[in-house]
Simulated scan of single mutants.
Amino acid sequence: MKAWLPFLLSAAVFTSACSDDDIVNPSNTLGVSLGQTASAVVVGGNTTVPITLTRGGGFSGSVNLSAENLPTGVTATFTPATVDGASTSSVLTLTAASTAAAATSTITVRATGNNVTAGTATLPLTVSSNGLTLSASATTAMAAQGAATTIPVVINRIGTFTGDVTLSAENLPTGVTAAFSPATITGTNRVTTLTLTAASTATAGLSTITIRGAGTGVGAQTQTIAFTVSPSATAGFGLSMSPAALSVQAGQSVASAITIARQNVFAGSVQLAAASVPTGMTVTFTPNPAPGTSVAVTVATTSATAAGVYVIPITGTSTGAANYVSTLTVIVSAP
């Protein structure tokens, strides 16, 4: 019996080390594809990359995502970092610290799961000290079939870059169109409004739309928006703003307008309210509550309003309908 003891102990150790999670089923497959063939990020900024997973051979489990070979000063986050078996998408955000060095590298996105060989995809990444950053005030948006929604978009020019920035939208779902006002941000201007319009025949469901900002001589920047088209059969309403991004000098006023898109048989008045309004600023709506489809918006500032970029949620409420939240971005400059 003593002669068999070492063999039994070795077998026990081997068995415990090899759990079911370590066994790879050769028929299971896991693929990773990226929404960009190359990416660029400006020092102090960030950019986003859509990720799509492909499961095959009977594999239907959760997938963990990670990034490898990141350059110094660049971090990666995934939303979500673990993709459950019912989902196939995530978004990678690459952020370059202010201390990151300008460089070009190739990062690897790795997807792992139980009982399946890991899937990988590579992405050339350029870190630059000159360029632009791009930010949308909302990372999620919704419009009913036959309605529209608006999203403010703000750019920052960094380093020696002073050129025009052209905006575009990619990966639009069937029946959805995108329009920027303006489509090119010129001079010292920094804001534009993206309007997403869903036709009455638009496919209902969730999709990931990519906003791209491009300038001559600098790397393009992208941001993603999780956009939902809801069926028009449900009574309710949506809000769209024009423009959805405003610039104003402290002590002055500026105007915008809200269009209320009414769904199905909804005919109620909509009460509007603004949140996160900074000191010295007021936001008023006329009329409020709104019985029709048009509302005038006035943003007034005083000398006490500090310079900065403010994202102000605008919430509409009405009896018998779900609340709807839109956003208004206000850039205040010093007097």
Rank of each mutant, 00 (worst) to 15 (best):
N156T: 11
N156F: 01
R157A: 06
R157Q: 10
R157E: 05
I158K: 03
G159M: 09
T160G: 14
T162L: 05
T162N: 14
G163T: 04
V165W: 09
V165K: 04
V165C: 03
T166G: 05
L167S: 02
L167R: 03
S168V: 04
E170H: 11
E170G: 06
E170C: 03
E170P: 05
N171V: 03
N171I: 01
L172S: 03
L172H: 04
T174Q: 13
G175R: 06
G175F: 07
V176N: 10
V176F: 08
V176R: 07
T177K: 12
T177H: 02
T177M: 10
A179F: 07
A179Y: 02
F180V: 11
S181F: 10
S181P: 07
S181G: 14
P182C: 01
P182M: 02
A183F: 03
A183Q: 11
A183D: 11
T184F: 10
T184L: 10
T184E: 10
I185M: 04
I185D: 03
T186R: 05
T186M: 06
T188H: 11
T188M: 10
N189K: 12
R190M: 07
R190E: 13
V191L: 13
V191N: 15
T192L: 01
T192V: 01
T192F: 00
T193K: 05
T193I: 05
L194G: 07
T195E: 13
T195I: 05
T197Q: 12
T197E: 12
T197M: 11
T197F: 14
A199R: 06
S200C: 03
S200H: 09
T201V: 08
A202M: 03
A202F: 02
A202R: 07
T203V: 12
T203R: 06
A204T: 13
A204V: 12
G205M: 02
L206S: 15
L206R: 15
S207G: 14
S207D: 15
T208H: 04
I209E: 13
I209K: 04
I209Q: 10
I209G: 10
T210K: 11
T210W: 09
I211P: 04
I211S: 04
I211T: 05
I211M: 09
I211W: 12
R212E: 08
R212N: 09
G213K: 07
G213D: 13
A214G: 05
A214K: 12
G215N: 05
T216K: 00
T216F: 00
G217Q: 08
V218P: 00
G219F: 09
G219K: 09
A220P: 15
A220V: 01
Q221D: 03
Q221L: 04
Q223P: 02
Q223V: 14
T224A: 13
I225Q: 08
I225Y: 08
A226M: 13
A226S: 15
A226E: 15
A226Q: 14
F227Q: 06
F227H: 09
T228M: 13
T228D: 14
T228Q: 15
V229I: 04
V229R: 06
V229Q: 10
S230L: 14
P231R: 10
S232E: 13
S232N: 14
